[in-house]
Design a binder for these strands. Sequence first.
RNA 1: GCGCCUGUAGCUCAGUAGGAUAGAGCAACGGCCUUCUAAGCCGUGUGCCAAGGGUUCGAAUCCCCUCAGGCGCACCA
Length: 558
Amino acid sequence: MYIREKINEQIKEITAGALNKSLASGAFAIETMPNIFLEIPREKGHGDYSTNIAMQLPKQTRKSPRFIAETLMANMDTAGSYVESVEIAGPGFINFKLKKSWHYAVLEEIAEMKKDYGRSQKNKGKAFNLEFISANPTGPMHMGNARGGAIGDILASVADWTGYEVTREFYINDAGNQIVKFGDSLDARYRQLFGEDIPFPEDGYQGDDITEHMKNFIAENGDVHRSLEPSERKEILIDYALNKNLTQIKSDLAAYGIHYDVWFSEQSLYDSGAIEETIARLKEGGFTYEQDGALWFKSTSFGSDKDDVIIRANGLPTYFMGDIAYHVNKYITRGFDRCINVWGADHHGHVARLKGALTAVGINADEFDVVLMQLVRLIRNGEVTRMSKRKGKAIALTDLIDEVGVDATRFFFNLRSPDSHFDFDLDLAMEQSSDNPVFYVQYAHARICSIIRQMAEELDNTVALDPERLSEKEELNLLEILSLFSDEILMAEEKLDPSRITHYAIDLASAFHSFYNACHVRVEDKSLMKARVALIEATQQVIENALSILGISAPERM
RNA sequence: GCGCCUGUAGCUCAGUAGGAUAGAGCAACGGCCUUCUAAGCCGUGUGCCAAGGGUUCGAAUCCCCUCAGGCGCACCA
């Protein structure tokens, strides 16, 4: 248990004890016990912790907040706790000031847990599935996938640090209409390369990569496929290009620092009969009906404003149907306790109906959430550029990484919460200017490493470590921020917002830089020097841990 | 028309399950390297928290409504 949790429990116990004593003494009476809520005041002058309990009780007790606060304070027993003093302030806040010694527990915790400092057990034993990117494998990864990739990958790490057993998963949309179009496009290019004057499908994939695939295919296979029936040939071409694309996607993402545990094929749901089983399950439950030759799911029974087709009149299941079967597979076949998907905000309309369908088949939809990320707008020369995979004008992920670097790209895409609209200014990003805060954090890390390298020779090992030597406000501030790391990870998991880790890393780096300018590590006083080395070693460790969650390197020299 | 997201300093954004005087970065200006990395630090100014109403001891935060921008509302994925 981390020091913050211990203190929290102590103060809650102290407050609850005071409340019980006050009640027993007859100072006031209540009907229901309130929740004791603690917060860390923004103003340092208001102490280390604060509770508003006295302001929640006037209604029940018919006493003033001030009176309640005073009564509680008089009945508090802080012996043996970290609480040094208690005071009442403002409209009735009870503020707790802690003994400085609590700071030093942080150093010990970090020194003990090292690379695991910040991990917690909250979700131990639970299986967590995080599905992200999940694009059509009809082309290489582009910039639009980059944000979802960074958010998903980092959120997966965050979940891992809260104790979940995490599976990163890519749902390959290798079935359905887009694949048919893909095949039509490939076939048209194939025939055009042999000089046939045929029109290109109007809504086909126009990218050069389609033509490239067919050039390579012809180079490898000659013209033996020309005589085949188009449908037969398309199948071969699709299979060929899809495999090439998947290989490409995997290497693109690996270069981006993303490694999936599972690549799940949509087509496999058809092949395995999972779709059929799920349809049967929905029918048995009475959640379907036929109309206009199609099979419909009663989304309206689960709060949606319209029902949805799951099998078209032509007999082919819709994408929605596949997604239901896919999630049945996740929860029931594979037994995940919690599933999170990262989707573009343009798919938000599909969340409710999928939750409805999951509820229909008996899955607890509270354990299913979708992180909706606002789409990225591409800014070039100060103008918005529309991205279109089919027009072939999208910036490839690999190009972005080449220009900007993996670290900056990942950091940049996690600078804002997923639901904020995001403009990616290409010119700025490609300038590689030091405006990018990733340098700020990495620089703090490199600076510390540099000092540690030099101190290693000067440190006197016969001097005992005395953490109480740390008493400057910059030192204490640094310790306080270090102690919040685990809470920040838990909050990021609860809110499904990985950008909190990025912000934390910046705050921590900032606290270090301030310390660095205010306090020298290399000082005559060997005991003080020892304590400061311990402090920066702890800081180095936590920056390293935060960066490892972010999937960003922690350079030892810059 | 219905639904979702967003609206906070000149710009880009934070703002912790409603809390005490609304915060950073960038930009502007002024300081700080004869000792550990100046890719750094310190200081100075800026706000009808989009408008209005409500709940509350207390609202940027919750509710209602209006306005503005983005995105959905397919037998597309």
